[in-house]
Design a binder for these strands. Structure first.
Length: 426
RNA sequence: GCGGUCGUGGCGAAGUGGUUAACGCACCGGAUUGUGGUUCCGGCAUACGUGGGUUCGAUCCCCACCGGUCGCCCCA
């Protein structure tokens, strides 16, 4: 027997119904916020992620699914969505479209080569949105609102929106210098990872879990104290919009996102729900002014976020949210006897052509067993056809919830059953 | 990449160095030759992750590998 590859999963019908439901909700929400769907390939040139996501990131350094194709090109299964969306934005010159900002959403699998565990698969699915072409703080707030809106619409309660500002280039450079000056004297006391980070990306020392209790952490320079006027005002405005919309959040100056392209607004949505395991992050996002330029486009600001569908469903599970999924079958067709069974095939076809959801037995089950099957499938109606009915050109239709039964002429079977399904048997 | 833990029929789950490896659920049939549930009776299955080793004999003991799961790192 061949099993599925490590870190992947099969979604069986019981699961796919939930997936379809949350996808529909997400799409509907994107529609109300006026984001349009974009579909990009699931693999790209490796270079896109090296340049887009950043060479120093864990994603690029140790988590990419990279392979050579037959033409000796280095390709990579996408580890995240933003780089591809920006690539497409640049490639198709969407910056020239009459309506800006360009508001896009995507749904699809992402791949990271990691040891699988709760809420972390090698193939996982993200919903994401990107708004390109606006540096209005209101759109930062809009993106966060959309994200929170989805979770709340689905019924989640234990949510925490965490925001921070990473500032613009100037602010970051100042902060970086302050960080290096601050940590340099303690470098030998920090973990080996942090010693490397000090060289490459000192910002990330701030969210190191090993060194979080080191005394130098408490006194570390905060990015918020190094924001220049523009960055500072920008962040204030983003928060003001959130306040105005009544969206609760907390500011965490140590919130540092793992991808290089972020600046200004950075945010994460976490779940506090019991039994959610060690994973708490449901989604993350932020502003990426400069990325479009890095990937060969004109100077274009952008912001977006992505959420994991697996974690979304875990959170729903953890909070015991029941999704409104209708599992009931409209109609089950029970036939008895050779002639009736033949006729049943025709009548089932007739009913289906009328748009009624109907199924029948294909296992040669006895009459009683067919009823059991109908019950198990939660059939609303059972149509019964035996020799007696056949002779009189009728069927018996039974409403399973009430036990009411009515005789229906075969000629009128489709219209009558349609009426029953919509409004009950009488 | 590192560490803990686990691996017995479709699912859940006992168990033992030695003739036919419990049980429960599910499924099928009957009691009830055309009406769902319950009950009772009967039936059912290529099951000890893979490969080595120890042994007269291994599902059990040892080793390796594979896989699941949880945690670390990091993230969605």
């Amino acid at each position: 027997m061949i099993n599925l590859p490590r870190g992947t999963q099969d979604l069986l019908p019981e699961q796919t119904q939930k997936w379809q439901y949350v996808e529909e909700q997400f799409k509907a929400l994107c529609h109300t916020y006026n984001y349009k769907e974009i579909r990009t390939p699931i693999f790209e040139h490796t270079e896109l992620f090296q340049r887009g996501v950043g060479d120093t990131t864990d994603i690029v350094q140790k988590e990419m699914y990279t392979f050579k194709d037959r033409g000796d090109r280095s390709l990579t299964l996408r580890p995240e969505g933003t780089a591809s969306v920006v690539r497409a934005f640049v490639q198709h010159k969407m910056f020239g479209n009459p309506t800006q900002p360009t508001k896009l959403f995507y749904i699809g699998p992402m791949f990271r080569y990691e040891r699988p565990q709760q809420g972390r698969m090698r193939q996982f699915v993200q919903f994401g949105v990107e708004a390109l072409g606006s540096a209005d703080p209101a759109i930062d707030a809009e993106v966060m609102a959309l994200a929170m809106n989805l979770y709340q619409t689905l019924g989640l309660k234990s949510l925490k929106l965490v925001v921070n500002s990473l500032g613009d280039n100037e602010s970051r450079a100042n902060h970086r210098e302050a960080l290096v000056n601050h940590f340099e004297p303690h470098a030998h006391e920090l973990c080996s990872d942090c010693q490397l980070r000090l060289q490459k990306n000192p910002l990330r020392i701030l969210d190191c879990k090993k060194d979080k209790d080191h005394p130098s952490m408490k006194t570390a320079p905060s990015i918020l104290d190094h924001l220049n006027n523009y960055s500072k005002t920008y962040f204030e405005q983003v928060k003001a919009y959130l306040d105005q919309m009544g969206i609760e959040y907390v500011v965490d100056q140590n919130l540092v996102r793992g991808l290089d392209y972020y600046n200004h607004t950075a945010f994460e949505i976490m779940s506090n729900a019991e039994g959610f395991g060690s994973i708490t992050t449901l989604s993350g996002g932020g502003r990426f002014n400069g990325l479009v330029e890095d990937l060969g486009g004109p100077e274009t600001p952008g912001i977006g976020f992505a959420l994991s569908v697996e974690r979304l469903l875990m959170a729903l599970e953890a909070e015991s949210v029941i999704l409104p999924i209708d599992e009931a079958l409209d109609c089950y067709f029970v036939a008895l006897g050779e002639k009736a069974e033949k006729k049943a095939v025709e009548l089932v076809y007739t009913l289906r052509n009328a748009g009624i959801q109907v199924d029948k037995d294909y296992q040669g089950k006895k009459f009683k067993a067919q009823f059991k099957a109908a019950d198990r499938l939660k059939a609303k109606y059972v149509v019964i056809l035996g020799d007696e009915e056949l002779e009189n050109n009728v069927v018996n239709v039974k409403e399973m919830s009430t036990g009411k039964q009515e005789q229906v002429k075969i000629d009128e079977i489709d219209s009558t059953l349609k009426r029953f399904v919509q409004g009950g048997i009488s």
